[in-house]
Amino acid sequence: MKKAIYFLLPLFALLTARAYAQDPRPNMQGTPKGAFYQKFTNNTGEKIKLNDVITFNFIQKTDKDSVLFSTYKSGKPVQAQIQPSQNAGDLMEVFPLLAAKDSALVKVPTDSVFKGHEEARPPFFPKGSYLTFILKIEKVQSLNDAIAEKKAEAQKLKDGEAAAANNYVATNKINAVTTASGLKYVVTQPSVKRKPLAGDTVLVNYTGRILNGKVFDSSIAAEAKSASLDQPGRTYEPISVVLGQGQVIPGWDEGLLLLNEGSKATLIIPSALAYGEKGAGQDIPPYSTLLFNVELVKVKPGKHAPASKTGIMNPAKKKVYRKTPVSKKKN
């Protein structure tokens, strides 16, 4: 009998140690799916409900306190609609415990995050470790209120786009030609060589900016380096585009057809001929007028489409101006 008791003692100790190890801090509470949380505040406002839209800031860390991401550093909080929780990592079990202006610490076991795909587990998240979130709920809205606010913000951007573009042209004293579609362009280096036709392949060097001067992409090494663009593996050379095939945004398709081989120009492209109401990633906001300094390096004759009766591209057909993703700045 004593032998049985002695045998059970170390087993009990082992099980107790394992159970305690699951809780990263004794004063934290657990959720049904295995996350742990500690509220720093307890505001008296109404708690977050299913389908609410929350705006929140967060810092994401490893067990060793290394910061992986911070919305404070990025300068922009994130939004999420509250849905039924699918796993511990979506934090949907924790959000309904909070109210507006509440803050909390949440620890998610990485064993649950990488369950079923251990090959994706990075070295800084060993088995038994936790992914840490420090959250602050900035705003809580009903779904209808959030949609209405988004629409109002979008309309404000849309209404201000033309004024901002015109102000840019006036401030910088750009003597641009405006086409029927709204594209503005100015030739900065003329050429007497041939113009391309729809169906021709053109080689183009370019640098793209938004109106505040921020460079979001370039095919030119010196320009990319000057703007601290992060373009790993990028080959800096003119890109190849078949015109009139929808391979590029409408503003490029239209603007490049106006240039001669060997010429350089600045294209001022309204969002209706670019990325419209959606924008493109973090670098190109919705309703952004884009500035491209382009050089039409070479024209290669191709199959020519029948001439359009109107000569105006359909602005509703929005494509990226090149196949590779828009580059991002280094942090």
Rank of each mutant, 00 (worst) to 15 (best):
P123N: 11
D159H: 03
I137E: 00
T132N: 15
N166A: 05
Y72H: 13
A152K: 11
V140I: 04
V113T: 09
T179F: 06
E153P: 08
K195E: 15
K184D: 14
P96M: 04
K101D: 15
E161D: 09
G182C: 09
V78W: 14
A120K: 06
Y130G: 03
T188A: 05
D102L: 07
E93D: 11
V192F: 13
V94W: 03
Q155W: 09
D90T: 00
G160R: 06
Q79F: 04
S142T: 12
A152T: 03
A163W: 10
P122R: 04
L131Q: 14
E93M: 03
D111P: 06
A120W: 05
G128I: 00
S74E: 15
S103M: 09
A99K: 04
P196Q: 11
Q86M: 06
D111L: 02
P109D: 14
K150P: 13
G116W: 12
I147V: 02
D90Q: 05
A154H: 12
M92C: 04
V186L: 11
V94R: 01
A165K: 05
L97D: 04
I147F: 11
S103Q: 12
E118M: 02
I134Q: 11
K107W: 15
P196I: 01
A170M: 13
I174M: 09
K136H: 11
T188D: 13
P126K: 00
Q81D: 09
T71M: 11
V140A: 03
V106T: 05
I147K: 08
V177W: 05
P77Q: 09
G116K: 07
V106N: 08
A163H: 12
P84F: 07
K151S: 09
F114D: 10
A163T: 08
A99Q: 12
S142E: 15
S191K: 01
A152E: 15
D90M: 03
Y185I: 00
A88N: 10
T171Q: 14
A120C: 02
Y72C: 06
L183G: 04
G89Y: 13
T132F: 13
V140C: 06
K184F: 08
E138W: 03
T171R: 08
D200T: 00
Y185C: 01
V106E: 10
A80E: 15
E149Q: 06
K151Y: 13
K136S: 14
T132M: 14
T179S: 11
K107V: 06
N167Y: 11
F95A: 03
N167C: 07
I134D: 10
F125W: 08
G116V: 02
I137F: 00
N175M: 07
V106W: 08
D159T: 00
P77W: 07
